[in-house]
């Protein structure tokens, strides 16, 4: 059975970059471009997801990602609901599987899930009957972040291949880093990981990235400098001695950025710690920093992902309806 020309994604969920093909990645980015245009119009609303129920389940605090998914869903006409999971049933001892069972009974169509533990979103996806989007699981993956970063890079650089990209800072604890390493690697870019050894375990070299402990060396001739957020609890003596020592050696400022290519762009997934991993003025420099563009691309990429997953969902349901005995 052939369906409408723009196909959905191969899988039912978006759990990570790892299972995506290059074609799927590019399909998401191409569709996202259309939504960038839509989002810049006065009237942004469509009915693409009309009748679709989207539930945002955040087991870990988030402001910008949750807002981005919520706006994306609303612009597509979905019924969007936020469940603040930290404050609810989890506190009362409900297991993740029980939560999934409860949700199934409510018949949602798209679940957007963030969870503090790696693999938790995959587990939930096995137990529910709808599409699941990973909005960040532990240190594992944050696929929509990598996709929005990719879209930003492609728009700024005009291509998404044969670029040298430095990902800097707390690699060890970063799901953003893992998803970006996977995505940029699939598209044939050269990836450098830069950070202190305590935040950059040696195993990362085996993922095919170059590992640098020295910022100046790591940034040399890069096209893209991607800074990562350093969590507060990792700053004071646990993984690095202090904020000032970190900033001195690994904080991005104009002097260190001078080692990158003159047209290198600066990215950050936010929220930023000014004066920790990045100089405040540099973050605001509209000639180098694309941090605000990243936020804009975030909404568009999430719209594209939900659109494609909904297409797949409709195809699935249509196919199921065609099978005798399964309908009704």
């Amino acid at each position: 059975m052939t369906v409408s020309p723009p196909a959905g994604l191969e899988g039912r969920h978006l759990l990570g970059i790892e299972p995506l093909s290059v074609e799927e990645i590019l399909r998401i980015l191409d569709l996202a471009e259309e939504y960038v245009a839509l989002n810049r119009q006065a009237v942004k609303r469509t009915d693409t997801l009309a009748g679709i129920t989207q539930i945002n389940m955040f087991f870990e605090a988030s402001t910008r990602t949750q807002a981005s998914f919520e706006i994306a869903g609303k612009r597509l006409g979905a019924d969007v609901m936020n469940m603040a999971m930290q404050a609810s049933s989890i506190r009362k001892g409900e297991t993740l599987i029980d939560t999934a069972t409860t949700l199934n009974a409510m018949h949602p169509d798209i679940l957007v899930v963030r969870h503090p533990h790696s693999g938790a979103v995959n587990l939930l996806a096995q137990k529910v009957n709808c599409a699941v989007i990973n909005a960040g699981d532990g240190r594992h993956e944050h696929p929509t972040q990598a996709l929005l970063d990719a879209l930003t890079i492609r728009r700024e650089k005009g291509r998404l291949t044969r670029l040298t990209v430095a990902i800097c800072g707390d690699i060890a604890h970063s799901r953003v880093a893992r998803s970006n390493i996977l995505l940029l690697g699939k598209l044939g870019n050269r990836i450098r990981l830069v950070g202190p050894r305590t935040l950059l375990p040696r195993g990362f070299a085996e993922l095919g990235a170059e590992v640098h402990e020295n910022m100046e060396e790591g940034l040399a001739d890069t096209d893209v400098v991607m800074m990562l957020r350093l969590q507060k609890e990792r700053m004071d003596g646990a993984f690095i001695p202090s904020v000032r020592e970190y900033y001195h050696r690994w904080g991005l400022d104009a002097a260190k950025l001078a080692h990158a290519r003159p047209d290198a762009i600066v990215m950050h997934p936010g929220p930023m710690n000014r004066g920790v991993e990045i100089d405040g003025d540099l973050a605001d420099d509209i000639n180098r920093s694309v941090i605000r563009e990243q936020v804009e691309m975030g909404v568009a990429v999430r719209m594209a992902v939900m659109d494609l997953l909904a297409r797949r969902l409709r195809d699935e349901r249509a196919a199921a309806a065609d099978v005798p005995g399964r309908s009704g």
Partner: peptide, 15 residues
Amino acid sequence: LTRRREGREMSEIGL
């Protein structure tokens, strides 16, 4: 090696 020699947080080794 650690702040106040308490064995909890590393000192500013680089600085």
